[in-house]
Structure formats: C-alpha cells, structure tokens
Simulated assay, not measured.
Amino acid sequence: MKTIAVIGAGTMGNGIAHTFAQSGFTVKLIDVSEKSLEKGMATIAANLDRMVTKGTITEEDKHKTIGNIITYTDIKDGVVGTDLVIEAATENVGLKLQIFKQLSDVCDHNVILATNTSSISITQIAAQVVHPERVIGMHFMNPVPIMKLVEIIRGYSTSDEVTKIIMDLSVKLGKTPTEVNDYPGFVANRILMPMINEAIETLYNGVAGVYEIDTVMKLGMAHPMGPLQLADFIGLDVCLSILNVMYDGFKNPKYAPCPLLVNMVMAGKKGVKSGEGFYDYSESKKAEKVSKQFA
C-alpha cells in the first residue's frame, strides 16, 4: 500500500494527510473547495514548522512530507491509482452516504474504503458500496499527528483480511489500533459524549461555571483538558451531531443533547472554529492576553 486518498481537507482530513505523508506515503488530498485545500495545506505546513522548532523532525523531513501530498478538487481524479481511500468529511450521514456511493462508482473494486466517522454506522455506509466487505472505520483522534489511538471499526460485512490490513497499516503509522464493533458512538464517543453532555447540563442547571467545571475535572480527575474546553476543540456542532446519532441509534434519553448545546450551535457558537464556544477564542481576546503578558 503506497498511495492514499483522503477526502476532506478540514481539521481531521489535513491531519490524516499529514500523518500518512510524514510516514512516506503518497497522499492525494481531495476537497471540493480550493480554498479549503489551501487552508489545509497551510495548517500542515504550520504544524510541521512547529515540529521542526521542537526538533522532532528536520527541515528536510518537512519538505519531503509536503512533497508527498497532491491536492485535487475532483474525487474521480483524486482516487485514480489509490490503494486506500479515507473519507474525512463533515459528520453528516447524508453527505457520507453520497460520497461512498460515488466512491463505489469511481474506485476499483479492490480499493479499501475507510471512513473517519466518529459515530455513524459503518454497516449503513458500507451498504452504499459494491463489495461492502472492503469498508471499514478508521476513527483517528484529534490532533491526528500527535494522538496515538486509531479506533478501528468493523461493519457487519467487513472482512478479516481488510481488518488486518488496516490494523497493520495503523501500526506502520506509529499508531495504536484498537478494534471495536459497529454500534452508535463506538467506544470513544459512547463514553466521551455523555460526559461532555453532562458537563453542559451541569452548567445549564447552574451548579457551577465553565471554569469551575473544567477545573474540577482537570485537577480532581486528572483529565488533561476539561470537558467544556474539549467540546470547544472538538466543535460543538460535531458534539451535537454525535449525540443525535447516538440518541437516534439507542432511543435512550441519556443521549439526548442538552438544550444549551443545541442553542449554542444554532447561535453559531461552535467553539474554536467559530471563535467562541464555552470560551472566547476571538482575535481581540488573544490580543488582550498578549497585552496582559507584557504589561
């Protein structure tokens, strides 16, 4: 396996492309938006620069990594000659099903098709494809170049051979693959999202403030990041989508999104990506922090 296509140049897509390219694979990064591709490549370059500064990689490693990535705005052109396609588009069921229907039409039948979905049924996605046994979940964690875990999700039809190939491939990337079965939220988000949702409920009910809730979980439970700050980094819209998938899948009220989360997403407060969520990430706030440091 030498050539990988990644669909989606957003946070997860560019992180996956970065990781494969740094490991020596030829990566075809695909996004319908040229602007998104430019932003994704700029993010990869900035992340590589940080690694050079820290001494993790050399300047030569950085240039090789960037040189391993080719960008495309057309899926049909981008998947030509690939051994594996990883879909990393927005966590939207309709969009993912549409992409996999297209992949079924334009990819050779021996190409493995993976999805980076964090909650949507692999079996449902595979049903859109000729030879569903080649469809598998590869749920990378954010930030992809740093986080070691890859949740490998087998759909109902996923073959043993494909599972082994993807498990072995993940190890070659320096990751720790963990095989799980296909149920809403899998393992990571089935446990994480109810915790985040409960933290939002705690805020909503006036038990404590944002800072206090996160401080309790960081200092009391040894979490590196509080649940509300983590929600901001994941994206509040993504958290809402995952909770809705789990609620629809289990029909259990414990997965129902907190009204505060629903309202914040409707108001455009999506966390880091929008500049504001439970915390303020706006440029004015950043400037204020800098001015205080040098006061």
Score class of each variant (00 low, 15 high):
residue 193 M to D: 11
residue 211 Y to E: 13
residue 104 S to L: 04
residue 106 V to F: 09
residue 253 P to G: 11
residue 34 E to S: 13
residue 203 L to P: 09
residue 116 N to L: 00
residue 75 I to K: 03
residue 36 S to Q: 14
residue 75 I to W: 00
residue 242 I to R: 00
residue 125 I to D: 00
residue 163 T to N: 02
residue 216 V to F: 09
residue 152 I to E: 09
residue 124 Q to A: 13
residue 1 M to N: 03
residue 61 D to H: 06
residue 258 C to L: 04
residue 218 K to G: 04
residue 164 K to P: 04
residue 174 G to E: 07
residue 218 K to R: 15
residue 76 K to T: 11
residue 25 F to W: 10
residue 162 V to F: 01
residue 239 C to I: 06
residue 10 G to F: 04
residue 175 K to E: 05
residue 185 G to I: 01
residue 228 L to Y: 06
residue 66 I to M: 07
residue 127 A to I: 07
residue 46 A to I: 01
residue 223 H to C: 02
residue 159 S to Y: 01
residue 90 T to Y: 15
residue 72 Y to F: 13
residue 184 P to T: 01
residue 149 L to Q: 02
residue 89 A to D: 11
residue 295 A to N: 15
residue 75 I to P: 01
residue 179 E to A: 13
residue 215 T to P: 02
residue 230 L to Y: 04
residue 175 K to T: 03
residue 53 T to L: 13
residue 253 P to A: 13
residue 38 E to H: 11
residue 73 T to V: 09
residue 133 E to A: 08
residue 107 C to Y: 10
residue 41 M to G: 07
residue 249 G to L: 02
residue 226 G to M: 02
residue 263 N to D: 15
residue 241 S to I: 12
residue 50 R to K: 14
residue 160 D to I: 02
residue 183 Y to W: 15
residue 140 F to V: 07
residue 276 E to D: 10
residue 57 I to R: 05
residue 22 Q to H: 14
residue 79 V to T: 05
residue 176 T to N: 14
residue 257 P to F: 00
residue 269 K to G: 01
residue 55 G to M: 05
residue 25 F to E: 06
residue 119 S to H: 02
residue 83 D to L: 13
residue 58 T to M: 12
residue 234 I to P: 04
residue 247 Y to D: 05
residue 109 H to E: 10
residue 228 L to V: 06
residue 262 V to K: 04
residue 180 V to Q: 00
residue 227 P to F: 03
residue 207 V to P: 09
residue 153 I to G: 00
residue 15 G to S: 11
residue 231 A to Y: 03
residue 278 F to T: 00
residue 126 A to L: 05
residue 6 V to E: 15
residue 124 Q to E: 14
residue 290 V to L: 15
residue 94 G to N: 11
residue 114 A to R: 01
residue 153 I to T: 00
residue 167 M to P: 00
residue 22 Q to A: 13
residue 94 G to C: 03
residue 276 E to N: 11
residue 228 L to P: 11
residue 247 Y to A: 12
residue 128 Q to G: 09
residue 146 I to C: 03
residue 49 D to Y: 08
residue 169 L to K: 05
residue 208 A to C: 05
residue 253 P to C: 14
residue 63 H to L: 11
residue 275 G to K: 05
residue 291 S to T: 15
residue 280 D to F: 08
residue 20 F to P: 00
residue 100 F to M: 07
residue 30 I to V: 09
residue 50 R to S: 12
residue 223 H to F: 12
residue 265 V to D: 00
residue 10 G to L: 03
residue 203 L to Q: 06
residue 117 T to Y: 11
residue 35 K to W: 08
residue 25 F to T: 03
residue 45 A to R: 15
residue 172 K to D: 06
residue 82 T to V: 15
residue 74 D to E: 10
residue 295 A to G: 15
residue 105 D to N: 12
residue 135 V to L: 07
residue 243 L to N: 02
residue 27 V to Q: 05
residue 50 R to V: 07
residue 87 E to P: 07
residue 277 G to S: 08
residue 255 Y to H: 03
residue 52 V to T: 09
residue 83 D to P: 06
residue 135 V to M: 04
residue 207 V to L: 08
residue 137 G to M: 05
residue 51 M to Y: 13
residue 106 V to I: 11
residue 176 T to M: 13
residue 262 V to L: 11
residue 89 A to T: 10
residue 34 E to L: 14
residue 29 L to N: 09
residue 186 F to L: 05
residue 165 I to C: 05
residue 112 I to C: 01
residue 286 K to W: 08
residue 258 C to T: 12
residue 111 V to S: 01
residue 107 C to M: 07
residue 164 K to H: 08
residue 15 G to R: 08
residue 292 K to G: 07
residue 234 I to W: 02
